[in-house]
């Protein structure tokens, strides 16, 4: 019951974030949605995810405020042309159709389909020695996933550093533009 109230709060926060005129308040409303997700994780029995979500949420809020503060304060009010709106209508219809099919197939709330993970839960402590089953999965059973994650994070940060660098390593005679 509390989860439903929290989800409604998050939906309201995301609508405010998308429709408000001020960019800074939009970013802060998005941060409220992230904090709501964090509390949901805590209530759903995932404390590890909640800690990670809180740290990531704070960082991305800081980064987004860095992007918006003291920039573009003129309001962009015009919507996109009619083609985009028709496209979003068609997409919403298709999305509702497929999500109806999907909601009929998935197991009901509170009864998960634990096929692979029952093996992990039963043998995780004996095989890996980690009492936290999530760390056992991340760092042992699916270690290659974590390697890929580290690679993606490295590439993203390297790309951001290259983009934000003030001066490129160009020769003096090559003029920009």
């Amino acid at each position: 019951m509390l989860l439903i109230i929290l989800l409604i709060f998050m939906i309201a926060g995301s609508i405010i974030a998308l429709e408000t005129k001020n960019l800074l308040s939009a970013v802060i409303a998005a941060g409220a949605v992230g904090a709501g997700v964090c509390i949901c994780f805590l209530m759903l029995g995932a404390p590890d995810i909640a800690i990670t979500q809180m740290a990531v949420e704070t960082l991305s809020l800081v980064i987004l405020i860095r992007a918006t503060i003291s920039r573009d304060l003129t309001h962009i009010t015009a919507q996109r042309e009619a083609g985009g709106l028709v496209a979003v209508g068609v997409f919403m219809a298709v999305f509702v159709l497929f999500s109806t099919f999907a909601l009929m197939e998935i197991p009901p709330f509170g009864k998960p389909l634990m096929t692979v993970s029952s093996y992990y839960v039963q043998n995780g402590l004996a095989q890996t020695g980690a009492s936290n089953i999530i760390s056992a999965i991340i760092l042992d059973y699916r270690g290659y996933d974590t390697l890929g994650e580290a690679t993606i994070l490295f590439v993203a940060v390297a790309g951001a550093i290259v983009l934000l660098r003030k001066k490129g390593r160009k020769k003096a005679e090559e003029k920009d533009e």
């Binding site: 029995g45 995932a46 590890d48 990531v56 993970s117 992990y120 999965i137």
Partner: peptide
Amino acid sequence: TVDPLPQALVLTSIV
């Protein structure tokens, strides 16, 4: 216990 496998994947996805 709740299902640990989606939690592990979501931990990757958040980062």
